[in-house]
């Protein structure tokens, strides 16, 4: 990363002009070190979230209750691996390698979305994750399709398309459960109860406590504050939950005619901070699983690299 880059007045002027006319910065353009740094942080965190986020859903692949649901779930978790790869590649255009990002994750230096530190204890969690967690992600990510950094914006277009499919399948799981047997309906309601508050907290702390928001908005990376997006999301849930014939565990949800936005009850930010600080239900488990896959796969990666080197050496000999 270009931490100590020389002052480049022409570069800065171009950057400012691009941001001012709401256009795109591309990898070879000059950009301020802070901007690059903020992007690497946000994009790699997003990539890590996709990868760690595979685990809670992979937990149900082998137990999916019908073959069709098993196929859909497999495809969804596989999509998440694809999103992670795509985002790592987009982040590499900023000069940080995937290996560096992986190291940062495994060393506990890089974050991923805290939501994935909650356990998936029932099949209905597959529905709640799709509907609420992916729903919150889409609400966050659709504006990112207009982010000022070109590779990020383009990556988000594709990712949002697939996330929309994920959200629909989650909603469909809950719909099927809520119209099923009483036991299935109870399973669905329990999942909605557990995932509601954590999904609202995915938008991050209230704007007043969010250190990165204002800068990100000035750079046209973020377009809306955390609270505005959260309120929009609550409005979406409040309408769709009626179709599900389930309830949201928050008696304070209502549309505020004065502010023209959705109000909701207080969230337990102390819990959010606890989970963020590594004291959630599954933090250690998620990291251990990622490390184990990485460590157990080391000999495979070494073998592939050694084989590729031998092949290329033998091709060189043949060419000589």
């Amino acid at each position: 990363m270009a931490e100590n880059q020389p002052v480049d007045d022409a570069g800065q002027a171009n950057f400012d002009a691009v941001i001012a006319k709401d256009s795109r910065i591309e990898p070879k353009d000059w950009m301020p070190a802070d901007y690059r740094h903020a992007l690497v942080r946000q994009m790699s965190q997003h990539a890590h979230s996709e990868i760690i986020g595979m685990q809670p859903e992979a937990n149900w692949i082998t137990r999916a209750p019908s073959l069709k649901r098993k196929a859909i779930l497999m495809a969804k978790v596989q999509d998440e691996a694809g999103h992670g790869l795509y985002l790592y590649s987009a982040t590499e255009t900023l000069g940080t390698t995937r290996d560096e990002m992986t190291e940062a994750l495994l060393a506990g230096k890089a974050r991923y979305s805290s939501i994935f530190n909650y356990p998936t204890v029932s099949w209905a969690d597959m529905g709640a994750i799709g509907w609420m967690v992916d729903g919150a992600a889409i609400t966050n990510q659709v504006p990112l399709c207009r982010a000022s950094y070109g590779p990020y914006a383009r990556a988000m277009v594709r990712i949002c398309k697939e996330e929309s499919f994920h959200q629909r399948q989650g909603f469909e799981i809950l719909l099927e459960l809520s119209h099923g047997t009483p036991g299935q309906k109870a399973m669905a309601q329990d999942a909605v109860n557990r995932w509601y508050a954590p999904s609202l907290m995915m938008f991050g702390p209230p704007d007043a406590d969010s250190p990165n928001t204002s800068k990100s908005m000035a750079w046209n990376i973020k377009r809306f504050g955390n609270d505005e997006l959260r309120s929009r999301f609550v409005g979406m849930l409040a309408e769709q939950v009626k179709v599900l014939e389930l309830e949201l565990p928050d008696p304070d949800i209502r549309f505020n005619e004065d502010t023209k936005s959705w109000d909701y009850g207080p969230l337990d930010w102390a819990e959010f901070k606890e989970v963020l600080a590594g004291r959630g239900p599954c933090n250690a488990q998620r990291m251990e699983r990622r490390r184990a896959a990485h460590d157990d796969g080391a000999w495979v990666r070494e073998a592939a690299a050694a084989y590729a080197a031998k092949q290329s050496a033998s091709n060189d000999r043949e060419a000589a």
């Binding site: 990868i51 595979m54 685990q55 992979a58 692949i61 082998t62 497999m74 495809a75 978790v77 596989q78 691996a81 694809g82 992670g84 790869l85 790592y88 699983r289 184990a292 896959a293 157990d296 796969g297 080391a298 495979v300 990666r301 592939a304």
Partner: peptide
């Protein structure tokens, strides 16, 4: 079972 446990993300995708 391999999905999320592969030696490389590319293999999570391929085996999946």
């Amino acid at each position: 079972h391999w999905i999320s446990r592969g030696p490389e993300l590319e293999e999570d995708v391929a085996l999946g």
